[in-house]
Design a protein around this nucleic acid. Structure first.
Lengths: 214, 214
DNA sequence: GTCTATAGCTGGATAGAC
DNA sequence: GTCTATCCAGCTATAGAC
């Protein structure tokens, strides 16, 4: 990608690409067999290497899960960090919720890994977890732009949106039975939480014209 | 329990109690080791029998999960079926949501088994699943008593409540960070969904004075 | 770094005596 | 129905040659 790299970076790049190839194979595998269905043998076969070779890149099976988690968390943060329409705080909030929903329904396996802790002995490392925290911070800022700052309202928001997504993923995969309710749900939420605002579309934006997202 | 039972019922009763003892041991085990941590060896040890003896009562490991699921589903339906205050539809709805929440947070493992399908090869049998359907029907009726009949509003309700519970179970086990938001969330929901009603407390109940539950 | 071979373990399920 | 003994499959992870 970048011109003029040194010899040691060469090796590093090669190693990194093999590393990534294994993770790609892992995603491909779990998308078919489920998260718990990941085995080193199958993974190695799909990656075109032998099982022990995997250990040249990862210390353990959980290290593979952690790398998957870390990558997914970064994708997640990136997905939500893309610029929004700052002229309409409400529209931006809906967009954000839709992106979250889209991200989750795009890959239920990824959703399961990131948001439902279901793998027996696995806990993500703090490094892998960090981007997810950044994303929540972004949510908080986005809500603040809508005049919502109370902690309990932020909690209501996360419950509302994850509830919709969870129902969608659990009970209507591939459909839109719940995700299509995002608009109305956000309306309901804003009408309830926005303090002294009668109509839905805010006439004046609350402070801060830039820098909401990353 | 009942007087004058026949000899064949004796045997049946004994068998049933052994059956139940195994399921009890299974719940005890998964509450410590997690749902995926259930193994026939550990289960047998906790039940005070040998591993193969388990097969005298269950055809397979999944049959054990199914029995657990069935019992939990019946408890669930029963929990929600207890009589409510029919004088105040809104209060009854809140009570129902609180019971659901309580039921789920009482035993996260049971919640996981019933509502998050996370066990690799396991699908509950229709018989085991039936009570859960009954319970959802009860929810629908309870919502109808609040004047809420549109399908999309029923879906919004389930998403809202499961969202709160899910966040509670996932991120604040043992606390009440999200469950304490039930009241306010129900208010928000009713204010949004109740068609032509300005105030929260309905002056007149919509039809049907009895038979909401069960 | 990559392989073959295999250790070491744990799991579900079965055989057959009692 | 209950046991002991065992089978067989699958897994993660390591050893050691190349």
């Amino acid at each position: 990608m970048i011109n003029s790299i040194e010899t040691s970076d060469w090796r590093e790049a090669r190693r990194r690409s093999a590393h990534d190839a294994i993770i790609d194979a892992a995603w491909s595998l779990v998308s078919e067999e489920g998260l718990a269905g990941l085995t080193l043998r199958d993974l190695a076969q799909r990656a075109g290497i032998s099982a022990p070779t995997v250990y040249a890149y990862f210390d353990s099976k959980n290290a593979i899960y952690d790398a998957m988690f870390g990558g997914a968390a970064m994708d997640f943060a990136e997905c939500l960090a893309e610029p929004l329409d700052y002229d309409d705080a409400r529209a931006a909030l809906i967009t954000r919720a839709s992106r979250f929903s889209q991200f989750c329904t795009d890959s239920p396996t990824r959703y399961q890994l990131l948001f439902q802790r279901t793998i027996p002995g696995f806990e993500p490392s703090p490094e892998s977890y960090a981007p997810a925290i950044r994303a929540l911070e972004g949510t908080r800022e986005q809500l603040a732009l809508n005049g919502i700052t109370e902690a309990r309202h932020v909690d209501m928001w996360t419950a509302l949106i994850t509830g919709l997504v969870d129902q969608q993923v659990s009970n209507d995969l591939g459909g839109d039975r719940w995700t299509r309710l995002i608009d109305e749900s956000v309306d309901m939420f804003l009408t309830h939480c926005q303090p002294a605002r009668a109509s839905r579309k805010p006439a004046s934006r609350p402070a801060r014209p830039k820098g909401a997202q990353k």
